[in-house]
């Protein structure tokens, strides 16, 4: 088994990461803007990016179900393996739960999500103000969990590269390939 993620896995990982680095600050920024046409526009862009992440996450999960990730180095302590795998599972879960909570929140607030203004997502919930406000809190909470996890996740990856000098980061990078 090659000790690297496939091109598909690497592309999906970084494409999704990039979109999250766009959707997250956009979400925080737009929320605080006074109501204006630009605010409406940014809300729509945020939702479109979020739904795109949701779709990519589905493809990614299919990839994951049909491929095994490269094995972790044999000398890695048990608790580290466990921590890494737990964080990965949680990140996968959030890749679905965050867009899902956003989609449901929009439905409950009476504002349907129409992907890129073209593809309407069905409203799974009826208009309900209390539920909409609750889902907004849920969306926010999930997002700040994501922030914490990604910081830990990226920190661990950097530690592997710069302190441990192992290949963990490289095998998820499209460049920096060392002969192994």
């Amino acid at each position: 088994m090659p000790n690297r993620y496939t091109h598909t896995a690497i592309s999906l990982h970084w494409l999704i990461a990039l979109l999250i680095f766009a959707a997250f600050p956009l979400g925080v920024y737009m929320h605080d803007l006074p109501l204006s046409p630009d605010k409406l526009r940014l809300y729509s862009y945020h939702k479109w990016i979020g739904v795109t992440i949701f779709m990519l996450a589905i493809i990614r999960l299919v990839w994951r179900a049909t491929h095994r990730p490269p094995p972790l180095p044999a000398n890695m302590p048990k608790w580290e393996r466990f921590a890494a795998e737990s964080v990965h599972h949680l990140l996968y879960a959030l890749l679905f739960l965050i867009p899902l909570s956003g989609w449901l929140m929009s439905s409950a607030k009476g504002f349907q999500t129409v992907w890129f203004g073209v593809l309407p997502l069905p409203d799974l919930l009826g208009k309900n103000k209390e539920l909409g406000d609750l889902l907004q809190k849920v969306h926010e909470l999930l997002n700040f969990s994501l922030l914490g996890l990604v910081l830990g996740h990226a920190g661990a990856a950097l530690k592997h590269h710069f302190i441990r000098h192992d290949t963990i980061l490289e095998r998820m990078l499209p460049f920096l390939r060392r002969n192994s």
């Binding site: 409406l40 526009r41 809300y43 729509s44 009476g110 504002f111 349907q112 999500t113 129409v114 203004g117 208009k127």
Partner: peptide, 8 residues
């Protein structure tokens, strides 16, 4: 219609 989406 806001951003192409009908809102009631």
């Amino acid at each position: 219609t806001q951003m192409g989406v009908p809102v009631e």
